[in-house]
């Protein structure tokens, strides 16, 4: 469990990234911080592995105040996946994945065998192990990034817009994969994004942020879509522009066509298979 207690962050140049933020991130679930740039979401994420220290307030992991935990050791037990993968270009894929276990003193043989398992988990062909990151596609690089984040079997996985730099089709595929992986590994995931669809797709808990890290709404995807807390959230969701005010129109072949507020078709509504009550599309 990760807990933010009234944290604030003012940078030395005087800009205030976060004013007063409190949140509990439950274990073994995915919490998404959703907001546009400048809302302090990345700052908040980086407080968890002490890449940023709060100016005031506390961050706790399982009731332990992070201020007293040495940063380098802390980072080695928290997975971190970032945009542009951040892979080390001078190390082979296999060595990139094995980075943290190696830093923790695990033998090379053991770290590599673990890395091979992880490559399988994230759906990477074993033949890519000896390639350099520059030889991979953007999507493949992000998979390596996820595998690297999981390499030391951390309880917590921090993800900073990890799929922001890949094209939309690959992004959706990676989101699907992440959900599959999460059902297997059940990590405590904190995920930062500005993409509302991504947040709805991945978050067990979604935190919508305004500037300065002000919380606009916390809830499940369903709660947020069904009942936006205020105009800001509604606007962010695109409810007011009609993007999410969907209507159904009977379809000639049976079922319904779903259209948005502007009348443009966005999908087809089939009759639900029996016994299913999946809230998300």
């Amino acid at each position: 469990m990760i807990e933010f207690r009234h944290v604030a962050k003012t940078y030395p140049d005087g800009t205030t990234a976060v004013e007063d933020f409190s949140l509990t991130v439950p274990s073994h679930t995915a919490t998404v911080l959703l907001g546009s740039s400048g809302c302090g979401k990345t700052t908040l994420l980086r407080m968890v592995n002490r890449m940023v220290d709060p100016s005031s307030g506390q961050v706790l992991i399982d009731d332990e105040d992070l201020a007293s935990v040495p940063p380098v050791a802390l980072r080695r037990r928290i997975g971190y996946v970032m945009q542009n993968s951040g892979l080390l270009p001078h190390r082979r894929v296999i060595d990139n994945i094995a980075t943290v276990p190696r830093l923790n003193g695990v033998s090379k043989r053991e770290a590599h065998s673990r890395a091979h398992e992880l490559m399988e988990l994230v759906g990477l062909d074993a033949a890519l192990a000896s390639r350099y990151p520059g030889q991979l596609s953007g999507g493949q690089q992000q998979r390596v990034g996820v595998a690297r984040g999981l390499a030391s079997d951390p309880n917590i996985l921090l993800m900073d817009e990890p799929f922001g730099a890949v094209d939309p089709l690959v992004r959706m595929e990676l989101q699907r994969e992440l959900r599959r992986i999460q059902t297997e590994v059940e990590k405590t995931i904190m995920f930062v994004t500005h993409d509302i669809d991504e947040a709805l797709a991945l978050g067990d808990q979604i935190v919508v942020l305004k500037t300065g890290g002000e919380v606009a709404q916390v809830g499940t995807a369903q709660e947020i879509v069904e009942a936006p807390a205020d105009d800001f959230v509604a606007q962010f969701l695109g409810v007011d522009s009609g993007r999410r005010s969907l209507q159904t129109v009977p379809r000639p072949g049976g079922g319904h066509t779903v259209v948005d507020g502007g009348g443009r078709p966005v999908g087809v509504l089939e009759d639900p298979p029996e016994g299913s009550s999946e809230p998300r599309g």
Partner: peptide, 16 residues
């Protein structure tokens, strides 16, 4: 810079 940041996040000490 993003590679240096990423290395820091993985738990590289400054010297390492």
């Amino acid at each position: 810079e993003h590679i240096r940041l990423s290395a820091t996040a993985q738990g590289f000490s400054p010297w390492r």
